[in-house]
Deep mutational scan, measured.
Amino acid sequence: QLNAMAHQIQEMFPQVPYHLVLQDLQLTRSVEITTDNILEGRIQVP
């Protein structure tokens, strides 16, 4: 299920590496919260 959620987020934010999306999802278990984390700059994109 997390993989499906990660792919959904990757479609919206292809610039964010998959492993970072998955790592955040493991903590949040939420597409909405992880999306917010990306938008708020809480996930550092190399």
Rank of each mutant, 00 (worst) to 15 (best):
9 I>W: 02
4 A>M: 11
45 V>G: 09
15 Q>C: 15
45 V>P: 09
7 H>M: 13
22 L>T: 03
39 L>D: 02
38 I>G: 01
41 G>E: 05
33 I>M: 12
12 M>E: 06
13 F>H: 06
8 Q>D: 06
26 Q>P: 02
5 M>F: 08
43 I>Q: 01
7 H>W: 10
15 Q>G: 12
30 S>A: 04
29 R>E: 08
42 R>K: 09
39 L>G: 04
28 T>H: 05
24 D>C: 09
5 M>Q: 07
36 D>Q: 15
36 D>G: 13
22 L>N: 00
12 M>Q: 10
42 R>M: 06
40 E>F: 11
28 T>M: 02
4 A>Y: 11
43 I>K: 02
14 P>R: 03
41 G>W: 03
44 Q>K: 13
3 N>P: 09
30 S>L: 03
35 T>W: 07
14 P>L: 04
44 Q>N: 10
22 L>A: 04
36 D>A: 15
41 G>V: 03
44 Q>V: 12
39 L>C: 09
7 H>N: 10
44 Q>W: 15
4 A>W: 12
38 I>D: 00
9 I>H: 01
2 L>H: 04
41 G>M: 06
27 L>K: 13
27 L>C: 11
15 Q>V: 05
17 P>A: 06
12 M>D: 05
15 Q>A: 09
10 Q>H: 15
23 Q>C: 11
13 F>S: 01
10 Q>M: 14
30 S>H: 03
38 I>L: 07
20 L>F: 06
1 Q>T: 13
17 P>T: 05
21 V>W: 03
11 E>G: 09
8 Q>W: 12
10 Q>V: 14
18 Y>L: 15
3 N>L: 14
37 N>L: 00
25 L>S: 01
33 I>K: 14
30 S>T: 04
14 P>H: 03
21 V>L: 10
26 Q>N: 08
20 L>W: 07
24 D>M: 06
6 A>G: 04
43 I>H: 02
7 H>T: 11
45 V>E: 08
37 N>E: 01
6 A>F: 05
10 Q>F: 13
5 M>K: 06
46 P>T: 11
3 N>C: 15
16 V>F: 12
1 Q>I: 14
2 L>N: 03
27 L>Q: 11
16 V>C: 13
4 A>E: 12
42 R>A: 05
13 F>G: 00
39 L>P: 00
29 R>H: 13
22 L>P: 00
25 L>P: 00
35 T>V: 15
5 M>N: 04
23 Q>E: 12
40 E>L: 13
14 P>C: 06
15 Q>H: 15
34 T>Q: 00
18 Y>S: 12
15 Q>R: 09
24 D>Q: 02
4 A>H: 09
28 T>D: 02
5 M>V: 06
30 S>M: 03
19 H>W: 15
6 A>P: 00
19 H>I: 09
37 N>M: 02
3 N>D: 14
31 V>T: 06
1 Q>Y: 14
46 P>I: 11
46 P>C: 11
31 V>E: 05
11 E>K: 15
25 L>V: 05
11 E>I: 14
42 R>P: 01
1 Q>M: 12
31 V>M: 10
6 A>L: 08
38 I>C: 03
12 M>S: 07
16 V>N: 03
6 A>I: 09
17 P>D: 13
22 L>V: 08
26 Q>M: 14
